[in-house]
Design a protein around this nucleic acid. Structure first.
Lengths: 204, 204, 204, 204
DNA sequence: CATGAATGAGTTTTCATTCAT
DNA sequence: GATGAATGAAAACTCATTCAT
């Protein structure tokens, strides 16, 4: 389990250059898995298919990921790590900003992230959880709550926590509206407006 | 109630039972399936398990539902039918009410419905038979949009449509917070507040 | 088993008129079975399907035929009986005719029969035999052999027996050429010519 | 021989084995399938049984043949390829021979082939993938027709085509007479004689 | 006679995972 | 590290047959 995490976070694990080929292999396998999980869902995707799309043998895939779950977790972990990093960056810029401004920035960040990392959304709600995923979500909540807590004026801690749950889910609503671009954009704007007003009125 | 059931079935299930015993069996099988789909998810639930929990043989299950998808669709159709009926009822009471009041009533209706019909949420996002699902969602959207469109003052048609997409999804957010009752209630209240303010400010 | 045979040969079993309805039922079931066996083959045809096409319930089908095999056998028996009767008729007309003339008459009879009784060919070669079908074939052989044996000049018994095997199989060859009518007619004519010459030369 | 096998497989089987062990497995599985199809017929033979007789796991069978039909087709293709090769060989020896001599040679070739390749006859009349089967039969017809067309004196093209349909079917007639060896041999001889006379008289 | 719901053994097929090369 | 043949438990699905009504 530990080794899986380490592989998944290989970005943070600078190895010797002779392992470069290996890292490329792992990246290709994860990319292939992510793409297929998004296209067909976790259950409908087979390990053989994942290996094939990455141009690798099935044995090679199992060389790096002991189970299908482990692969999904590695992909999700990588995504979550990226999101976390971005949220950290926002943290600095947000200090002292009004809540509505923070909400706007968060909207943009999450919107971009979910659009460019579809696997995150696809793998986030897998059943059979009760552990690792919970921690990951908790971390995300804390980061977002911290964002709102350091606004000026600061949001009450309770509300910040509630918004940390709500906002990421809000951003997933327009994603389902594929093929209805106009409605999608309208919904996104409506959501932004709703949240902004909520935060402005709240402080008045 | 009988007519509702029959309608729901006629969409998803060509082989409708003709005797009383058969109709009872079908109801038991659908209940068993719904419970298991909620507990373990669609993919992780086996047809054998569904039949066993209903006290029926596997062949009996397939006698009425030719595939697992057909069973899921029949369950979803029944649920959707129930929701639609409830929304119709709301329609009359809502005429001439202010938007915020309608939103509140909708919140209560959807909250109750999702809590008492967990299979609806569990099966709503499944892939397969996209045409049928599209129609089902479209109907729900139209009903909710109509609700807002006949408020006093009436909401612009565009906004009514956007809210018809947004509100049902909002209500699914607290559902994920199982085991965190306090947070769950807080989130629900926060959402209600957010929507109410949005509609009050919107008309000002 | 005896009862099955009796039902199948109900033509030869004049019952009271109050059973007329029953005989119609049986006939419809056999016709339905025959048609489906021809269209899809014995294995691919289900008992439920047979009953449905006859407008009867599955239980009704089993009321008359204890197994699927029994139904097939009843159909085949009826067909074989018809063929046997026709061969008997030919028997009288053929006495004293030259072999080639008999062969021609046999060709016409078999050609007509196989074309109008496709179930005969479809059910004749079912596996898992070793008994009843063997007797049926033996009877047919004897009838045809007798036909040739009483020609003028008479064919040697051995050759008559061999031709009794060969001729019915010859007639099945053109049947496979569906959709190639010209070739089919040509093949039939070629076969007729081949047999006629064989019999003329043989006696010269 | 290797090239023949590969050709036959490439038609029916997309997943060709790449290692020596795999090729041996495939051969064993096809042999097992062929034997069982002959013994019990296509429908009565189960995939489990085929795998067991080959000493392989059921998954291994499906590794190479995605369906039972695909296995049957692969076997049939291999057989057809073998027959085609033999007919090609005859082609050279037959040039300039009188039609009756060609017919005799064809009789011997087909008789031997059918006796040593019982799966060919057992699988030839199966339904499914009519396009492929049509081509296979067309090829066989062309080869045999060509045989007769280059006789001395040459047979008219139309007759050559008709005989190309007839002769292979003639050869299947004695095959049904298992357990009646004397009759079987007699029938075979009678057929040979019939065809020889037909061709001699035909040219007179 | 007639019905059709009910059965469950049996079949096909899938796929995550292992391991010898 | 890399490969791909091999496995077999497990799942979906079928259908001849039975029997209570």
């Amino acid at each position: 389990m530990n080794s899986v995490r380490r592989d998944a976070l290989s970005v943070a694990n600078p190895r010797a250059p002779q392992r470069k080929r290996g890292r490329e292999r792992v990246a290709a396998l994860m990319a292939s898995g992510a793409a297929l999980f998004v296209e067909k869902g976790f259950d409908a995707t087979t390990m053989t298919e994942i290996a094939a799309r990455a141009g690798a043998a099935i044995g090679t895939l199992y060389l790096f990921f002991p189970t299908k779950e482990a692969l999904a977790q590695a992909i999700l972990a990588e995504n979550a790590e990226g999101l976390s990093t971005q949220l950290d960056t926002l943290q600095e810029r947000a200090r002292g900003q009004p809540p509505a401004a923070i909400a706007d920035a968060l909207f943009e960040l999450l919107g971009d992230f979910l659009a460019t990392h579809p696997a995150y959304s696809a793998l986030l709600d897998l059943p059979g959880d009760e552990g690792w995923r919970r921690k990951m979500r908790a971390r995300r909540r804390e980061q977002i709550a911290a964002l709102f807590a350091q606004a000026e004026p600061p949001l009450p801690l309770g509300q910040a926590e509630r918004l940390a749950v709500i906002v990421p889910q809000l951003m997933r609503i327009p994603l389902a509206l594929i093929g209805e671009k106009r409605l999608r954009d309208g919904v996104l704007e409506e959501l932004r407006l709703m949240l902004a007003r909520h935060l402005q009125v709240g402080q008045g």
